[in-house]
Design a binder for these strands. Structure first.
Lengths: 188, 188, 188, 188
DNA sequence: AATGAATGAGACTTCATTCAT
DNA sequence: TATGAATGAAGTCTCATTCAT
């Protein structure tokens, strides 16, 4: 009966947080985020009870989007390498086009404000890719290492690759392929 | 005589900074660092004009130590793989035994307080390893990629490996070898 | 029709205010009171235009109830001491059983939000007792002091007595009698 | 070797707190107190770690001063009534001349910020008077009641008396005597 | 040079009150 | 009229940096 809590506002705040945190890091003031969102200082706290809350939800939002984008349109029929390549390109293309989100994610990955619980949930968003990795490494040298270790390795290779693509966009395509080469070698 | 007198104090502050920042992140208060160093609040600022200053010098210090440790005792006569393995083990062993420094480095790597200039200088500390990498990848698939890209890839693989070694010290040796396997595959 | 519709809601808010303010003091949030009353945030302000409003009305409500309870069943035929004793016991018994209201009253008695006007009206609720006091002190040592001063003295003795009864309920009866002894001595 | 922490500043803050809290209650802003003290906002917190800290120390300060003033110049040779009268007059005169301190004390007496520990220590400041009360009531009607109850009764009579003296200073002397009359009756 | 008190800009969060629904 | 989201002023406390001693 009252003005309903608006998803639009919530999203506006999250979007603003991305822009501001990408620019200033997670120590950005909530007031700055609110202002960027065109929302009052206090309003931010009706949507997110705490700054840490906002950070955690932001983390999950981005992580989930990333996980979804990566698997988008993946055909399970093609051979593994093709599937991995598909995933790889989706992944890096997303990261290139949402470089702010990626920056934010990088910041939050080392932030003490993100709870272990949140990290666990965030990890769920990546299980689809892990499954693919599991199959891909089946006959590779690392077939007996812990899967999450292998996943982390591939992830770090992707991250590094993205860094170079962003830093040197002119050769983004080439970097992307080099990165894939490296990742695939690790798996096989 | 322009430098403040006691190198000891300077070192004490840096060492304290490592402990405190490892525990609380780079947002740790300068007062906390000074206290941990057994030095007064204000004294910190005669050795480091600014908090950012302290952070930058700390970054360089650690980076340089890491670079030096890694190359320590490297014999240039053995074959490349052996040399790389030697480096790899030195590197990860150092990271394991100085986990606080590593934590700090991880924090500073994403800190906005570290200037590009500092990063460039820090990079110098790694050129020795880069030379080895250059030779190692000579006949590998990535022989035409930018060297610093390849170096970054190997670096990120090392970082990830260290994470797992610290998280699961019981299997540190195994993780170390898995990581090396991955890195070597990328190079060859 | 100028009044908002539901007296029930109004009462619910006042009752909730007693519970919340007894627990948290007069700085309790209006939102907390509304919630405790099962009423919306904003609704509170259609019944009480202002937080200070609510506090003032609450003060009067409790004061009036107290005044009424005290005189309840007072027979004007018995001798003065018996009447006073009757009043005294009613008074303290009420305070014991409504300790939240008493706490609130104690808080509001020193609150800057209660206006002089409200205090004056609240005082009216006590005139019945004052009349009895006036007769009781007729032949006492304080017969020439201002009545309201004497009333205030007796009132403060009652308050102090109640404090002890609440703090040490096991001996509430004894404390009650000691308090009466003191009050009666002041009057005679 | 640095600028020493100044007792003067500490006192200035406490004095300012008295003025501001007397006027606005204990919810007065620390910033207002600092400003009134001619001290920076943050400086207040080097002298009192917390607002509650300040309040507690303020409470003790006033309570101790009151306790000292009351006993000042008390000759133990005169008869009990004279001693009590001496005390009574000292007490009320102090309260009259330091009405702000008294207001503050009244506020803090009901504040949740004052810890039980502080209250206990504050109570110590009054033991001198309690001893006198103990002797005074020796042969009175309340000789068997708990001493602290009797003390509280006398205290509340004093408080009420002071209220009237402040409210009606023209007759302060008369009120003072009436109050004493009442208190003495309670004891005898 | 060393100390640590002083400063004051901000940070996060709360809350009385207003207003769209 | 009831609701609860929106507002923004305030409040307490922290902290990098300066400065008196």
């Amino acid at each position: 009966m009252a003005r309903p809590r608006s998803d639009e506002r919530r999203s506006a705040i999250l979007a603003a947080a991305i822009r501001v945190i990408a620019a200033e890091g997670p120590s950005a003031a909530t007031a700055a985020i609110a202002k960027e969102a065109g929302v009052s200082n206090g309003s931010l706290f009706t949507y997110f009870g705490t700054k840490a809350d906002l950070l955690n939800q932001l983390y999950l939002d981005i992580k989930k989007e990333m996980g979804a984008v990566i698997l988008e349109g993946l055909s399970t029929e093609s051979d593994l390498r093709s599937q991995m390549l598909h995933v790889w390109r989706h992944w890096l293309r997303w990261a290139m086009s949402c470089s702010e989100k990626r920056r934010v994610l990088a910041h939050l990955n080392v932030s003490d404000d993100i709870t272990p619980e949140t990290r666990k949930v965030g990890h769920q968003a990546m299980v689809g890719i892990e499954a693919l990795l599991e199959r891909s490494r089946q006959s590779g040298a690392l077939r007996n290492a812990p899967l999450i270790f292998v996943a982390a390795l591939v992830n770090s290779i992707a991250d590094t690759t993205i860094d170079f693509m962003i830093r040197d966009p002119a050769n983004a395509g080439a970097h992307c392929d080099v990165g894939f080469e490296a990742a695939w070698k690790v798996l096989s």
